[in-house]
């Protein structure tokens, strides 16, 4: 659980954070979005006190973060940044072992944990442990960055544009994998991104900021369906209704019992992709692989 209350931080150049209230329930992921300079990265860095607030309170898993030693606090919070921020002079294994080493774990425990987290992020420990960061692709570096953040098993993770440096083709797969991983490990996550699609995919809630203030904090489907104002609507994009359909699957809506001809879609298909298939085929109903059919009316009713 991350709880920010009345957090204020003024920068000399403006664009700080003003009287921000934000809470992320345990095991959920909150995606901070907004135009550049809106204060989203400052907000993230306030949580692990890389930035110190002028006023307000921060509680992490019930503890007053401002009363703790910042160095100790940070060792208990996973931190992932763009490109991973790996130490170039250390091999992958040593990079992952940074926080365990700071916490004084013994060699055997550290080694076992390094192998475990590398496997968690989809990297074969035997193959990757002894490589140097410069020998990895952008996506692999990012995976190592995530493994490093998970190494000491912190309950809270901060992700700052974690997929920004990964090429678009690999990004979607990495996002899906990280999403599944975070859900499985039940981490409480604060994610900063400028990509609405990424925020919608990964966030249990979206927090949209503008000029240091929180404009709207809601579940993705809610925010996409009912943006608080014109700014939110603009930021989410003209295709926000389509983005929202991407949140639902065929299995989430009622189906017709009767089958229709054509190639069947599995019920795990998103309504966005199903609608796209209808447009492509010029039909108003699609057969579903698990039985029955999906109609355009059902898609429209999901609003």
């Amino acid at each position: 659980m991350i709880e920010l209350r009345g957090i204020t931080k003024a920068w000399p150049g403006g664009a700080g954070v003003q009287a921000l209230d934000l809470s992320v329930p345990e095991g959920e992921c909150c995606a901070l979005i907004g135009p550049s300079g809106c204060g989203k990265t400052t907000t993230l860095r306030l949580v692990n006190r890389l930035v110190e607030p002028d006023a307000g309170s921060i509680r992490i898993t019930g503890q007053d973060a401002l009363a703790q030693d910042p160095v100790q606090l940070r060792r208990g919070i996973g931190y992932v940044i763009q490109e991973g921020g790996l130490f170039p002079h250390r091999r992958v294994g040593a990079n992952v072992a940074v926080v365990p080493a700071l916490l004084g774990w013994d060699a055997a425990r550290t080694r076992a944990r390094v192998e475990e987290v590398l496997a968690l992020v989809g990297l074969d420990p035997a193959q990757y442990r002894d490589r140097w960061p410069h020998q990895l692709s952008g996506g692999e570096r990012q995976r190592v960055g995530v493994a490093r953040a998970l190494a000491a098993d912190p309950p809270v993770l901060l992700l700052d544009e974690p997929f920004g440096a990964v090429d678009p083709l690999r990004r979607a797969q990495l996002q899906q994998e990280v999403l599944a991983l975070l859900k499985r490990l039940r981490k409480t996550v604060l994610l900063v991104t400028h990509d609405v699609q990424e925020a919608v995919l990964l966030g249990d809630s979206l927090a949209l900021m503008r000029a240091g203030r929180l404009v709207q904090h809601a579940a993705p489907a809610e925010m996409l369906a009912r943006p608080a104002d014109g700014f939110v609507a603009d930021f989410l994009g003209a295709d926000r209704a389509l983005t929202r359909l991407g949140l639902f699957r065929i299995s989430d809506v009622p189906r017709e019992a009767a089958s229709v001809p054509g190639e069947a879609l599995p019920e795990a298909t998103t309504l966005r992709d199903a609608l796209s298939a209808m447009l492509e085929r010029g039909v108003t109903a699609l057969p579903v692989a698990e039985g029955g059919s999906l109609t355009l009316e059902a898609v429209l009713a999901s609003r």
């Binding site: 100790q72 940070r74 208990g76 931190y79 130490f87 940074v98 901060l158």
Partner: peptide
Amino acid sequence: VAPAVRDAADGMGLTPRQ
């Protein structure tokens, strides 16, 4: 030294001396 590397070092809880 790349700013991202310093940032990661701070964010993971290295003391300034470390």
